[in-house]
Design a protein around this nucleic acid. Sequence first.
DNA 1: GATAATAGGTCAGTATTATTGACTCATCGG
DNA 2: CCGATGAGTCAATAATACTGACCTATTATC
Lengths: 163, 163
Amino acid sequence: MPDMPDSHDSAVRRAQDLLFFAYRDFTNAADVLLEELGLGRAHHRALHFIGRRPGMTVTELLGILRITKQSLARVLGDLVTLGHVAQTPGGADRRQRLLRLTPQGAELEQRLFDRQKARLAPAFAQAGPDAFAGFEATMRAIMDPATRDMLDATPETGDRHVG
Amino acid sequence: MPDMPDSHDSAVRRAQDLLFFAYRDFTNAADVLLEELGLGRAHHRALHFIGRRPGMTVTELLGILRITKQSLARVLGDLVTLGHVAQTPGGADRRQRLLRLTPQGAELEQRLFDRQKARLAPAFAQAGPDAFAGFEATMRAIMDPATRDMLDATPETGDRHVG
DNA sequence: GATAATAGGTCAGTATTATTGACTCATCGG
DNA sequence: CCGATGAGTCAATAATACTGACCTATTATC
């Protein structure tokens, strides 16, 4: 009886609300700073993932953001023009343009990160480590298996790209 | 030393990833159906919250979605024209247009809900009840306090708006 | 009862983020 | 050599959002 509400429906509906509001308020945390700089959330997402996986290719970034080449072109062009992102030819495959943050881009990303950290860190401290573990397990279970695999295959260098 | 990376930074960065990917794949679940119907995610969000809080006012919906009147006008106009949403004058305040789903709108919302349920319910079952509790506690802690209060003040009638 | 404030709607113009489709160029791999 | 891939680009369009101004109906206040 797939169309009949069962005892799990209310948990799923509650989760829909949680996902919407937490994501809304989370993304909002960096908006003020972005607006001051004349950048949008798309720029922030690109900065975040390039900082998280320095040396990634354009194709990888397209796959993460799930947008088209044309959409990324504008955002990436802005960031390169502003001196936040540098592109270097790939060593093994010289067609590739490996993406990384410039020192200036890393500093900007850090400032944006601090805004979201100011929201997330107290939340995790308040909820406690067990809650965070449950949060992580649940969020991972929500993802596509392919997304999960990609995350697991990613080395965690993002918190050291400044040094 | 607010600009110095500490031991919590990696957890915050991991959480940024979790929020982005889980939200991306979660919202994606309903996209195929929405495209068939010629509707967008904005329409889905409106349907969801109207179904969740039948009788809500336009101002309340604007506050939840955090968009402007003009942005909502298009979406709400579409839904009313298509017969998915009905507006009735408020009893106490006749300036208000109380929003509710028509039977047809409830049926559409249910179909969209089923897509997301197909993704969320197995995820919660796999993660387990303790993980879900941690997920809920953490997501609530991420929100603005005002958002949390609003959620707590909302009667949970959304899973019964069909009957 | 006049008046201010609110709920909602609407018009005109613009910005951001995204799309599709076609095309070029350089490079890689068999 | 030649097909496939990585990346960039041009042109046109769509979805979602914005600002600012203005209007009506109704409620609340002085």
